[in-house]
């Protein structure tokens, strides 16, 4: 049985459907990523799992218990890190940890060994007496994670823990998550970053409150339909416009060049004449394998 299961979850705010008939399940020991742009509904799903929101319909369950009705029994096994930094900025690193130790009833020798352990992986010990408000973004997130881990939860729910954090700290943060996974902790994490999806066990694409697709990071790009080419030309507005005029083609700026999507059953020779007429050299088109982002964008546009 899945440790976490969400079934047909729906939640509206006024006329906006934040989450629309959303279902997924997470197994014990998995890292499950909810990926999507801002406003996709990730936070609503996560807050429902944490008993903070009552859904309009559907159920969220953790360890066989209803997140809305039996949340008290879930609390001891759950660690939650909200999107905004929610520790006490005027307390030091140690004081924040001690506070959460008290809240979770982790005291005395248990507390000391737990804090030593948390310091070891967070590398926050040299900053023990620094106030939380004076920490860097990355360190703040590590402190928040440490507090959420105080009571050794079996399941960890993280809402965009790495948004606004520098790339190096993001990598360190994910190393900690992978370490926790080894210890058997189940992790649900939301993120807008595709490179983080690659490090999860399974991911779910979320857009406008709906589930677009779900799968392993390796399998997800396989959902891409049609073919993809990299056009080695300057990605100006004019070039993009000219390419999009060509039938069965969608062009999008991608780094230094342009990604050109061809619809299913359409090949490059099929549109060669049209391309030449638009002033493009077909030799400049190089077939490439679609990645997670290409796949996500295609699914997003189709929805």
């Amino acid at each position: 049985m899945s440790l976490v299961s969400v079934e047909s979850l729906s939640k509206s705010y006024r006329e906006i459907r934040a989450v629309d008939d959303f279902s997924f399940a997470v197994d014990q020991g998995e890292i499950y990523a909810l990926v999507g742009p801002d406003g996709a509904g990730k936070t609503t799903i996560i807050r429902t799992l944490c008993g903070l929101i009552n859904p309009d319909s559907g159920v969220a369950m953790i360890d066989g218990l209803d997140c809305q009705r039996k949340f008290e029994s879930i609390k001891p096994i759950l660690g939650y890190m909200p999107q905004v930094f929610s520790l006490y900025p005027d307390l030091t690193v140690t004081e924040n940890l001690t506070f959460y130790g008290g809240i979770y009833g982790v005291v005395g020798e248990d507390y000391r060994t737990r804090v030593e352990y948390l310091y070891r992986f967070s590398n926050l010990k040299p900053f023990a007496d620094r106030r939380a408000q004076a920490l860097s973004g990355g360190m703040k997130q590590k402190l928040a994670l440490s507090c959420a881990l105080m009571h050794q939860p079996r399941i960890l729910i993280l809402d965009e823990p790495t948004t606004g954090v520098d790339p190096l700290s993001r990598r360190q943060f994910w190393e900690i998550l992978l370490e926790l996974k080894k210890q058997g902790v189940t992790i649900i994490v939301s993120t807008p970053y595709m490179d983080e999806v690659a490090r999860s066990d399974r991911a779910c694409f979320v857009f406008k409150g709906k589930k677009l697709a779900e799968g392993t990071p390796a399998a997800l790009p396989g959902l891409f339909e049609g073919s993809l080419y990299f056009c080695d030309c300057r990605p100006t507005v004019q070039t993009l416009e000219a390419l999009n005029q060509v039938s069965n083609v969608q062009a999008r700026r991608f780094g230094g060049g342009i990604h050109v999507y061809l619809r299913k059953d359409v090949t490059l020779p099929d549109i060669a004449t049209e391309l030449t007429r638009a002033g493009f050299d077909t030799g400049g088109f190089r077939p490439i394998r679609p990645d997670l982002e290409d796949c996500f964008i295609q699914l997003m546009e189709e929805s």
Partner: peptide, 13 residues
């Protein structure tokens, strides 16, 4: 305001 109350609501307190 700071979200710490929400964080506390997820703890067994």
């Amino acid at each position: 305001e700071s979200g710490t109350l929400e964080q506390l609501l997820v703890t067994p307190i």
